[in-house]
Amino acid sequence: MTPREIAIAVLAAGGVFFAFVAAVGVLRLPDLYTRSHSASKSDTLGAGLALGAVVVTFGANLSAVKALLLMLFMLITNPTAAHAIARAAAEEGIEPWTRDDGTQTSDEEVER
């Protein structure tokens, strides 16, 4: 493997890893706010790394420029979307999950 192929493999693997983390986070985290952390940001990095692999694969040409632009737009739109969701939730009055809620719930489960 050439160094370039290694770089592509590493970037792509990183992208897959963080996309996986994002998916696991959405499943495991307890409430809307914590989930949107995972959904928006691990995902941004995951997709960013995947696009990085694309850039390295294409080398310096127009497709690479387009991939870079895609990255830029994702960096702008992903946090904005996460913010919009969290803000809508806050205005609807959804209370964020806290550590105390967690212990309370597990106590209830024990009682049952």
Binding site: K41, P79, T80, A82, H83, A86
Partner: peptide
């Protein structure tokens, strides 16, 4: 700043 906070994982600008 609000967008940077949101981008940095672990912190999310709510409002």
């Amino acid at each position: 700043l609000a967008n940077s906070i949101t981008l940095t994982p672990g912190t999310l600008t709510v409002d």
